[in-house]
């Protein structure tokens, strides 16, 4: 039964990746009306404005939640074979991801001029994101040391790229219009690889 739950987490992580990739579709490819000079109160469904305001935040929240569930399953599966340090990094990453989810919820549900809620969300992100980055790198490094290269690379490469992107952006380098893709695509890749690992590992276990 435990193996079945591990296997379910594979498609969950796959769905998380799909959600993230949909958010990467440029608004210019969605039907008009597009975001412009004014705030439109009731945009038509599936218009670019609707996508920006409703679909994207929903997908980001869903992807975040599914990622937490999926990565939590990986931790539960591998916890017994991890070192104490690796386990600590993993817990840190999951805690940070959960906090990121909370921050995202706060930000997307903030009303007009609800500066307090938005600032709280930014504060949570400011604390959670470093935790996620460090946690994933440490977690992945543990897998690399135990020669589980695919899993290790999947967990370490995205946060390293994210740090590079944030650092270079703050230094003034403009990555638009591809900046968001530099974060979304590696994260989606991580979710797909980890999900595949869960699915195939479960399948191998059942064959035994």
């Amino acid at each position: 039964m435990w193996r079945r739950s591990y296997r379910l987490a594979g498609p969950i992580l796959g769905l998380s990746a799909v959600c993230l990739l949909v958010t990467a579709v440029p608004l210019e490819l969605w039907p008009t009306p597009r975001p412009g000079d004014s705030y439109v109160f009731n945009p038509p469904p599936f218009s670019a404005i609707w996508v920006q305001r409703t679909l994207r935040p929903g997908l980001v929240i869903s992807a975040n939640a599914l990622l937490v569930v999926g990565m939590g399953t990986v931790l539960r599966r591998d916890s017994a074979s991890m070192s104490r340090l690796q386990r600590a990094f993993a817990l840190g990453a999951l805690f940070g991801a959960g906090a990121c989810l909370l921050g995202t919820l706060l930000f997307t549900t903030a009303g007009t001029n609800d500066i307090g809620r938005e600032l709280t969300a930014f504060l949570i992100w400011a604390l959670a994101i470093p935790l996620v980055i460090l946690g994933l790198v440490g977690w992945g490094a543990g897998y690399l040391r135990s020669e589980r290269t695919r899993l290790g690379a999947a967990l370490t490469v995205p946060p390293v790229l994210a740090v590079a992107y944030i650092g270079l952006s703050m230094a003034g380098i403009d990555f638009s219009p591809v900046g968001r893709l530099l974060v979304i695509i590696p994260t989606s890749g991580m979710a797909l690889v980890v999900g595949y690992d869960l699915w195939t590992d479960s399948a191998v276990s059942e064959d035994r």
Binding site: T108, I115, L119, R180
Partner: peptide, 26 residues
């Protein structure tokens, strides 16, 4: 996480501070 540039964030903080002090905004 929705991406926000540092400039937008600081602008928001500044705008929110001014609006809070002013007591009203659109």
């Amino acid at each position: 996480m929705p991406s926000r540039s540092r400039r937008t964030f600081l602008g928001m903080v500044a705008t929110g501070s001014v609006a809070s002090i002013a007591g009203c905004s659109s």
